[in-house]
Amino acid sequence: INASIYDEIQQEMKRAKVSQALFAKVAATKSQGWLCELLRWKEDPSPENRTLWENLSMIRRFLSLPQPERDAIY
């Protein structure tokens, strides 16, 4: 996982035409506020920051699903 995940998140929300609230809920079981802060600060993903790493790993797993599967989840 690297910093490009933040751009991938924004691209996916645009592509699927979903809100931050919906993306946060389905991709990371988090709130819109959490995702907003995540995208604002764009912390460097590092395994040392375990909570951030685990949350980004969950999002990465969601983004790695085939597009039709992600669309069905939304």
Rank of each mutant, 00 (worst) to 15 (best):
A27P: 02
C36R: 13
L65I: 07
A21R: 10
V26Q: 01
D7W: 09
R61I: 06
R60C: 07
S46D: 10
D7R: 12
P68D: 14
W53T: 07
P47E: 14
P68E: 15
L22T: 03
E48W: 10
I73K: 14
K17E: 13
V26L: 08
K42R: 14
A72L: 11
E48R: 07
V18Q: 03
D7S: 13
K42G: 06
G33E: 11
K25F: 08
A3E: 12
Q67T: 14
A28D: 02
C36D: 15
K25I: 06
I73V: 12
I59C: 11
N49A: 07
E54S: 12
A72M: 12
D7G: 14
L35M: 07
I73E: 13
L35R: 00
L65K: 15
I73M: 12
E48T: 13
S19T: 10
F23R: 00
R40F: 13
W53H: 07
S57P: 03
S19N: 14
M13G: 02
R60H: 15
K42M: 07
I5Q: 00
I73T: 10
S46Q: 09
P66T: 07
Q11E: 07
A3C: 11
K17Y: 08
L63W: 00
Q10G: 09
P68R: 12
R50Y: 09
K14A: 15
A3H: 11
L35W: 00
R50T: 09
L52K: 07
S57Q: 13
P45L: 00
I5W: 01
A72C: 03
S64V: 07
F62Q: 03
E12H: 02
L38C: 03
T51W: 09
P66F: 00
G33W: 10
W34V: 07
D71K: 05
E12Q: 02
N49T: 01
I9L: 03
W41F: 13
V18L: 07
L22C: 06
L22K: 09
P68S: 13
R60V: 06
D7V: 12
P66H: 04
A72S: 12
W41M: 07
T29V: 11
R70T: 05
Q32A: 13
S31L: 03
L56T: 00
I73W: 15
K42Q: 11
A16V: 05
D7I: 09
M13A: 00
Q20A: 15
Y6T: 02
P66N: 04
L35T: 03
L52W: 07
S46V: 10
A27F: 12
A3I: 15
A27M: 02
R70W: 02
P66R: 08
R40S: 12
E8M: 09
N55P: 12
T51I: 13
I9N: 03
L35A: 03
V26G: 00
R70L: 02
S19C: 02
S64H: 07
A3L: 15
S19R: 06
Q20S: 05
A27R: 02
I73S: 10
Y74T: 03
F23N: 03
L52P: 01
T29G: 14
N55R: 10
P47C: 08
R15M: 02
K17D: 14
L39W: 03
K17V: 05
G33V: 11
R40P: 00
Q32Y: 06
K14L: 12
D71Q: 04
P47V: 12
Q32E: 09
C36Q: 10
L65V: 07
E69F: 05
I59K: 10
E54K: 10
S64A: 12
V26M: 06
L56G: 00
E12A: 03
A28Q: 02
G33D: 15
A27K: 02
T51N: 07
R60Q: 13
P68F: 15
N55Q: 14
L63V: 01
Q11S: 10
P45C: 08
I9Q: 02
P68Q: 10
I73Y: 15
S64P: 03
K25P: 04
L56I: 10
I73D: 04
F62S: 00
Q20E: 13
W34F: 05
K14P: 02
Q67V: 10
L35P: 00
Q20Y: 09
C36A: 13
E8I: 01
L39R: 02
A24C: 00
R15V: 00
A72H: 10
R50K: 15
D71A: 02
L52M: 07
V18G: 05
V26D: 04
S31C: 05
Q11T: 12
P66G: 07
D44G: 09
R61V: 07
S4D: 14
D7K: 11
Q20C: 04
S64W: 08
F62K: 00
S4A: 04
K42E: 11
L65A: 05
Q20T: 13
T29W: 10
K14W: 11
S64Y: 04
Q20L: 15
W41T: 12
Q10Y: 10
R40K: 14
L39D: 01
L22A: 05
Y6I: 05
A3G: 14
K17N: 10
A72Q: 14
R50P: 12
S46T: 08
A16L: 04
S4H: 12
E48F: 12
P68N: 07
A28Y: 01
P47H: 15
D7M: 11
S31M: 04
T29N: 15
T51D: 05
E54G: 13
E12L: 00
F62A: 01
I73Q: 14
S46P: 06
S46I: 14
A24M: 01
P47K: 02
A21Y: 07
L38G: 00
R70P: 03
Q11L: 14
N55F: 09
K14E: 13
S19Y: 02
K42L: 01
I73G: 13
L35I: 10
D7Q: 10
Y6Q: 00
S46E: 07
T51E: 12
Q11F: 12
Q10K: 09
L56V: 05
Q11N: 06
W34H: 08
L52E: 12
I59P: 06
P47S: 09
Y6N: 03
S4E: 13
P45T: 04
N55H: 15
G33R: 14
T51Q: 10
S57M: 09
K42C: 06
L52H: 11
L65C: 03
L22F: 02
K42A: 09
F62I: 00
T29D: 09
S4L: 11
D7L: 10
C36E: 08
V18T: 03
L56N: 05
F23V: 01
M13F: 00
R61S: 07
Q67N: 04
K14V: 14
K14Y: 14
Q10P: 03
I5G: 01
Q32H: 05
L63F: 01
C36G: 15
D7A: 11
L39N: 00
R40Y: 10
P45G: 04
Q11P: 04
E8W: 06
P47W: 06
P66A: 08
E54F: 12
N55K: 09
L65M: 10
M13R: 02
T29I: 08
L38W: 01
D71M: 03
E8K: 06
D71R: 01
K25N: 09
W41S: 13
I5F: 07
F62E: 00
L56F: 05
Q32W: 07
R60K: 11
N49G: 05
E12S: 00
W53K: 05
C36V: 13
E8D: 15
R15S: 04
A16H: 01
K17T: 12
S4N: 12
N49V: 02
F23C: 04
S46Y: 12
G33Y: 08
N55S: 13
D44W: 10
E69L: 08
Q67W: 08
K25T: 09
W53V: 09
K25D: 15
R61Q: 11
L39I: 06
A21W: 09
S64L: 11
D71T: 02
L65Q: 10
W53F: 03
R50E: 13
M13K: 04
A21G: 13
P47D: 11
Q11D: 15
S57E: 14
V26T: 06
W34M: 13
I5P: 00
S57W: 12
K25L: 08
W41Y: 14
Q67H: 12
I5E: 00
L56Q: 07
W34C: 01
R60T: 06
K42D: 06
A24V: 03
R40G: 06
T51V: 15
S19L: 00
S4F: 14
R60Y: 09
E37R: 08
L63P: 02
